[in-house]
Design a protein around this nucleic acid. Sequence first.
DNA 1: GGTATCATTCTGGTATACAAGAATGGATTT
DNA 2: AAATCCATTCTTGTATACCAGAATGATACC
Lengths: 231, 231
Amino acid sequence: MLGERLKNGIADLILAGSLRPGDRLDEQELAERFGVSRTPVREALHQLAVAGLVEMRPRRPTLVRRLSNADLADSFEALGEIEGLCARYAAERMTHAERLQLREIMQRAAAAVAGDDAATYRELDAEFHSLIHAGAHNVSLRRIAEQVRMQTAPYSSAPYTMQGYTPQISVPHGQHEAVVAAVLDRDPARAQAAMIDHISLSSITIQGILNDRAAGDLAGAAAVRVGAGKQ
Amino acid sequence: MLGERLKNGIADLILAGSLRPGDRLDEQELAERFGVSRTPVREALHQLAVAGLVEMRPRRPTLVRRLSNADLADSFEALGEIEGLCARYAAERMTHAERLQLREIMQRAAAAVAGDDAATYRELDAEFHSLIHAGAHNVSLRRIAEQVRMQTAPYSSAPYTMQGYTPQISVPHGQHEAVVAAVLDRDPARAQAAMIDHISLSSITIQGILNDRAAGDLAGAAAVRVGAGKQ
DNA sequence: GGTATCATTCTGGTATACAAGAATGGATTT
DNA sequence: AAATCCATTCTTGTATACCAGAATGATACC
C-alpha cells in the first residue's frame, strides 16, 4: 500500500515544519517529489483531510490546514481534556513494564534538559505522550489522542522553530514529572489534573508566541508594501 | 465534489444498517450502484477508513469495520467520556437559544415516548446528542464526538433492529432528561455525570444484546454445518 | 484418499488520459 | 486611467486501462 507511505510522508513534511499552515499542496508536485502518480497522492490528501491536517475545498488547491486563533484554542482545550483522560486511565491501568518505560523516558529527558539538548528533548516529549496514550489501554481513546495531537503539532513546534527563541525545556519537563509521579502513585485524579495543567500552559505559551510572530509578520508585510510603493 | 456525496452515501448505508459490520464493500459494485467510476469510490472508502467506519487491508477486500468486543467496549468508554465532556461544557456555555432548542427536542421526544414511536425517538435521540455536541462550543471536541458516535452507530442501532425486541425507549429518555435538567441548571459536573451514566448504560445494554445475538448466530451456524454433513 | 502445488480468476493498486471549473492576464471600452 | 470582460492556462475531478497480488479451485503426486 503506497498510499500509507505517502500519507505518512506528507504528514511528516507538515509535522516537521517543511510545509507550514496555509501552504499549497500541489498534487502533481507532490507526485513528482515522491515519484508516484497523482492518484495515490490524492488518496493520501483525502485521508489527511479527514485527519484534520489539510483542508480541501472543491476545485480549489489543497492547503495545509490553518487553524484560526479560536480553532487553535479549541484544539488545545480538547487536547488537554483528551490527554487528561489518557493520563487518568494510565494511572489506573499501566502495567509494571509500561511504568518502567515511563521512568526510563523521564531519565533520558532529564539528561536532555541538563544538557540543554532541545532536539532530543522534543523527541522524548513525543515519546512521553505516546506512552501515556498507550498506557490508557483504550484503543479508541488512543486513536483520538494521536489525531488531536497531530492536528496541533504544526503549532506545538512553534517554540522550537522560533528563531532567536530558546525554549525553556525545563518547564514542560517539570510538568511531565508531575504527571509521571501521579501515574506511578496510581493517583488518577492527580495525573489528570497535572496533564491538563501541562497542556494548558503549553497552549498559552504557544498562542503567545504565535501572536507575537503574527504581529511581527504583519509589520514586515506592511514594510514591504510601503517599500514597493503599492500593494 | 462527488466524493463527498459518495462518502455520505456509503456511510448512510452503513449507519442505516443496509451494510453490516463485516460486509464486503466491493469497489466496482459500489461504483455501479452510485453510477460513478471506481476512483471516487476509492477516495470515499479511504476517508471512511480514517473515520473508522470501514477497514482496508492491502490487497484485501474492504470491509465494514467490525469491532471486537474489546474494541466496542473501548469505543463506548471513549464515547462516554467525550460526550460527558460535551455535556459539561454545554452546561457552562450553551446560549439561551440553544437551551430553548434543547427543551423543544425533549418535549417532542417525550411525545414520541408517550406514543411509543421508536422511529421518531431514534431521530430525536440523534438530534439531542448533536445539540449537546454543538452546545459545547468547541469545534474540535464536536468533531471528535461526531466521529466516535459514528463509529459506534452501527452497533447502537442494534436495540432497534433486533427482531422481536421492543426497546424500552423510556429508559434512555429519562436519562436524557437528567442531562438536560443539569444543563439547564448550569450544573456542569452533574451534566457530565448524567451523560456518562447514560452512555454507560447504553453500552451495557447493547453489548448484552450483541452477545445474545452472537450466541444465537453461532448456534444457527453450527446447525447449518451439521445439516450439511460437513463444513 | 489426502495433501501440496500450480494456474486461473478476482480484487485492489497505480498510472495515464481527459474533462470541467477557477484564476489570472491582457485587451478593450467607458 | 481604471474597470470589466473574455480568453488562455493551470489545477483539480473523473474515468478507463493496465498491473500486481491474493484466494480458490483443480490436478497431480505421495
